[in-house]
């Protein structure tokens, strides 16, 4: 549904996308990972046909974003970053407005995204500005889907949203996937990425990884050890481990310390605590990927 080939994009002298290439199939959910400034929103603007000034090619929903922008707009639902609705209009008024602006019948809203609408319906007369962060994002997705698009672009729907609302949001995305909608969703929460079919990792405009979560987990090139450690004792543990042979990097991970090592490392206890060899999680992979660039 999305086919992107070697996209480069600059704002003046600053190059924000440095060669992005990927393919995404029907009904797939792809998580676009990256910190602020990684180029995520720029990529979304290009894919939604709003920004035709780039080099490379992009085909979305079967249409070229540069030559067939009108068809792309019909096939794509786009939820831009931050809150993109009218705070002084009620939930229902927002929906009716966008349905009409997209040339659709407002009465069809309920059937277009029944799962989302179910959770929004009790609030239909409340002003959008009074909704919680999670509900606002649900409403934004609803509004972007009024024309029944086959591709959905979600730019950071979980930013500033608490952990429970975030997991709700991913349940909504999973429900959309069942209806055959392809979803490209950006986030900087790594724990969310594992819920997607594939992960695209963008770092300062460079595509670092594009693979399924399993594939990414298998790509870990070093050994990873873990030992329990309160954050206050980290300097002590760091001092002792840094002196050991085979330690590449170490960092806090919740209530533990994770140690990246090579084969020469001997897992002897540190400050009296046992080291355990563990399987890396998504976050470990990204830290390894980023450290290797340093």
């Amino acid at each position: 549904m999305i086919s992107v080939r070697d996209i480069h994009k600059s704002f003046g002298k600053r190059e924000v996308l440095k060669g992005v290439t990927f393919e995404m199939g029907r009904g797939e959910t792809v998580a676009l990972m990256g910190a602020n400034g990684a180029g995520k929103s720029t990529l979304f603007d290009i894919l939604s046909s709003l920004d035709p000034r780039f080099s490379g090619s992009a085909v979305v929903g079967g249409f070229d974003v540069r030559t067939q922008p009108m068809d792309v707009k019909g096939a794509v639902g786009y939820v831009p970053g931050r809150f993109s609705l009218y705070e002084d209009l009620s939930v229902k008024e927002n929906l009716v407005f966008f349905a009409k602006a997209f040339g659709c019948n407002p009465d069809d809203i309920h059937s277009l995204s029944p799962y989302l609408w179910k959770s929004l319906e009790p609030f239909s007369d409340i002003r959008a500005g009074h909704l919680s962060g999670g509900m606002k994002q649900k409403l934004a997705i609803c509004c972007a889907m009024v024309h029944n698009p086959s591709v959905l672009l979600l730019d950071e729907p979980t930013v500033g949203v608490d952990p429970v609302s975030r997991s709700d949001m991913w349940k909504e995305i999973a429900a959309l996937r069942k209806t055959g909608v392809s979803v490209l969703v950006s986030t900087h929460y790594l724990d969310e990425a594992g819920k997607a079919d594939r992960i695209l990792f963008l770092h300062q405009g460079v595509m670092m990884l594009y693979d399924s979560p399993e594939g990414i987990l298998r790509s870990y090139r070093h050994n990873l050890y873990s030992l329990p450690c309160e954050s206050t004792r980290f300097p002590e543990v760091e001092a002792e481990l840094s002196a050991r042979r085979g330690v590449i990097d170490l960092y806090l991970y919740g209530d533990k310390v994770h140690v990246i090592t090579d084969e020469s490392f001997e897992p002897l206890p540190v400050t009296g605590r046992e080291l355990t060899r563990i399987q890396p999680e998504m976050e470990d992979i990204f830290i390894e990927t980023l450290s290797s660039r340093l």
């Binding site: 603007d45 939604s48 709003l50 009108m70 707009k73 019909g74 794509v76 639902g77 786009y78 939820v79 831009p80 970053g81 931050r82 809150f83 993109s84 609705l85 009218y86 966008f98 602006a101 997209f102 040339g103 934004a140 509004c143 972007a144």
Partner: peptide, 13 residues
């Protein structure tokens, strides 16, 4: 300067 303008530009208007 709101995201809503991007959404509006996704319409055929």
């Amino acid at each position: 300067i709101q995201g809503s303008y991007k959404l509006l530009r996704m319409t055929k208007l």
